[in-house]
């Protein structure tokens, strides 16, 4: 009897976890050190270049349709002269319990064997459910079929699909680069090792604020950084189990260093 109950409990539990994997071959993880990040946005442009993100123009920016898969959020607090500006780069958190995956009726977004929240453009029917459910507002929708003024289209990365009108997209952890690394490793008969994959944002980041790697590998940089006492995850209380780990910024928040400072 209790065996059946446990089974039933597990079964019910499994319906609460979107996707169907609990163990990952690789567990791709990103660590963002907010004490290093200076908000320069090099990562943002790098992602545009790598992932064929369209430029939407002023009007569409105005109604919040900018495409960047990674954005720098700014929070300004305090009054002059005790002002603090805080930055945080936010991209898809590749939640292991991703609300977006739960919402997609057609499995256009699902969890793969490497712990990635992947997006299958061809499969997407554009119901917006994933984007509505995403608690981090990282999903971007192709409101139109975007055009590149010729010859700007010559820059488009052939390793990445150019998306068409009506489909959802978001940061992929540069899956095309992961693929290349996995193929190369396979050809060489080994596993992907630390440093084989660089996401475009990580690659450009001048302050080295972003680190990417496999959390299943105990010796990887991300595994080590993930143990930092400064570790936290964004909106962790929502139990989305994100794959992006932030390291807290070091700063004295409350009493600022205004002119009265001794």
């Amino acid at each position: 009897m209790s065996g059946i109950l446990t089974k039933l409990k597990d079964k019910l539990q499994s319906y609460r976890v979107p996707g169907y994997r609990t163990k990952f071959e690789y567990k791709w993880t990103m660590v963002v050190d907010l004490d290093r990040c200076n908000g320069c946005e090099a990562c943002v442009v790098a992602c545009y270049a790598e992932n064929n993100l369209p430029v939407v123009g002023k009007r569409d920016c105005d109604i919040s349709r900018r495409f960047s898969w990674i954005r720098i959020e700014r929070y300004i607090e305090g009054e002059y002269p005790d002002v603090k500006v805080k930055f945080i780069p936010i991209m898809c958190q590749h939640c292991d319990a991703a609300p977006c995956e739960l919402g997609c009726p057609v499995y256009a977004t699902y969890h793969n064997q490497d712990g990635l929240n992947v997006q299958v453009y061809n499969r997407c029917v554009g119901t917006f459910t994933c984007a509505t459910y995403c608690t981090y507002d990282v999903r971007r929708f192709n409101w139109f079929t975007y055009k590149w003024d010729s010859p700007l289209e010559q820059q488009l990365n052939p390793d990445v699909t150019v998306r068409e009108m009506g489909v959802m997209e978001k940061c992929t952890f540069c899956i095309q680069r992961i693929r290349v690394a996995k193929d190369t490793a396979k050809d060489e008969g080994r596993k992907v090792t630390d440093g084989d994959v660089q996401t475009a944002c990580m690659q450009s980041c001048p302050t080295d604020a972003i680190t990417f790697g496999d959390l299943n590998d105990p010796n990887s940089k991300v595994s080590k950084l993930a143990k930092s006492p400064r570790r936290y995850r964004l909106l962790e209380e929502l139990n989305t189990d994100p794959s992006v780990i932030y390291l807290k910024r070091v700063m004295d928040e409350k009493k600022g260093h205004g002119s009265s400072h001794g």
Binding site: S64, R65, N142
Partner: peptide, 14 residues
Amino acid sequence: VGQGVTGLNTPTFW
């Protein structure tokens, strides 16, 4: 033309 003719946006997709 695309869903862009609506006023929908990020994050108000619905």
